[in-house]
């Protein structure tokens, strides 16, 4: 288990947690400020490349099948939308022409969510559920780790980060459910990495009221910093540890 992170968030990651699939990773993200909040926990498994059903087969490239399971209950349209967004990113990074007529199955299970109350009062929506940026962020990082574990060819490395602009116009990556609901805007940014530095913008999603200048000056810089931090402090250690374990008999 590798852990570390920035001033605001603690990431814990572990590779090869499941032994009957080709690649797997477990990730948890928690706030450094408020440890009682709980953590966002996600486990990801990857099977593939395997033989695909004739219906799913494409002649020149591999096909992706992504399923996201919520932490309570069964998958709904909310998870369908998450799967769709994940696919937009993964289609770009997975080297699908390397595995023609094959299938890659990615299953993500959300294990726990921070500050989640099972609110069943009539007429009260759990707004947290409709801000899916945090979940998507966790899903993307854990999928990246699981892809590395599975040894599937990728065109580039990628990592994501999430931040909000709160009502005091402060930009922060550490936020809880209430901060998110009361925020002016919330942003999810995915970059591809080259030599440990953020290179090109792969995906971004911003909700709420904001202007272009703030997005390009402040939001992107903050997220780039967070992503590079995450890469050097957690991801690299995690991968080094995996390779050490893989070659344990060699020395």
């Amino acid at each position: 288990m590798s852990s570390g992170g920035s001033d605001e968030l603690i990431y814990e990651a572990k590779l090869s947690v499941l032994n009957r699939v080709d690649g797997s990773a477990q990730l948890s993200i928690s706030s450094r400020k408020d440890l009682d909040e709980g953590e966002l926990g996600i486990i990801c498994s990857i099977t593939g490349p395997i033989e695909s059903k004739a219906r799913q087969e494409s002649p020149q490239q591999s096909n992706l099948e992504i399923s996201v399971m919520p932490h309570i209950g069964v998958a709904s349209t909310r998870e369908k939308l998450l799967e769709y967004k994940l696919k937009l990113v993964l289609d770009r990074v997975i080297d699908s022409f390397e595995y023609p007529r094959q299938l890659i199955q990615i299953v993500l299970q959300i294990l726990n969510k921070p500050n989640y109350e099972d609110d069943t009062t009539i007429g009260s929506d759990d707004m947290n559920d409709f801000f899916s940026l945090n979940d998507l962020n966790g899903c993307l990082i854990s999928t990246y780790l699981a892809l590395i574990d599975s040894g599937i060819s990728m065109k580039s490395s990628f990592l994501s980060s999430c931040c909000i602009i709160n009502s005091n116009n402060q930009l922060t990556t550490d936020f809880n459910k209430n901060d998110l609901i009361n925020s002016k805007s919330a942003h999810l940014i995915v970059y591809d990495l080259r030599n440990g530095k953020c290179n090109n913008l792969i995906y971004s999603e911003s909700i709420g009221e904001f202007d272009e200048q703030i997005f390009f000056k402040n939001v992107l810089d903050k997220c780039k910093k967070e992503i590079e931090n995450l890469n050097t402090k957690v991801i690299k250690n995690c991968i080094t540890e995996k390779f050490k374990n893989d070659y344990i008999w060699k020395a």
């Binding site: 937009l88 289609d91 770009r92 065109k155 580039s156 090109n200 913008l201 792969i202 995906y203 971004s204 999603e205 911003s206 909700i207 709420g208 009221e209 904001f210 202007d211 272009e212 997005f215």
Partner: peptide, 17 residues
């Protein structure tokens, strides 16, 4: 004319956004 939502998908690696 204020922005309320922005979604950028960089699916094509030849296009630099």
């Amino acid at each position: 004319l204020k922005m309320r939502y922005l979604n950028i998908v960089g699916g094509d690696e030849n296009v630099i956004i």
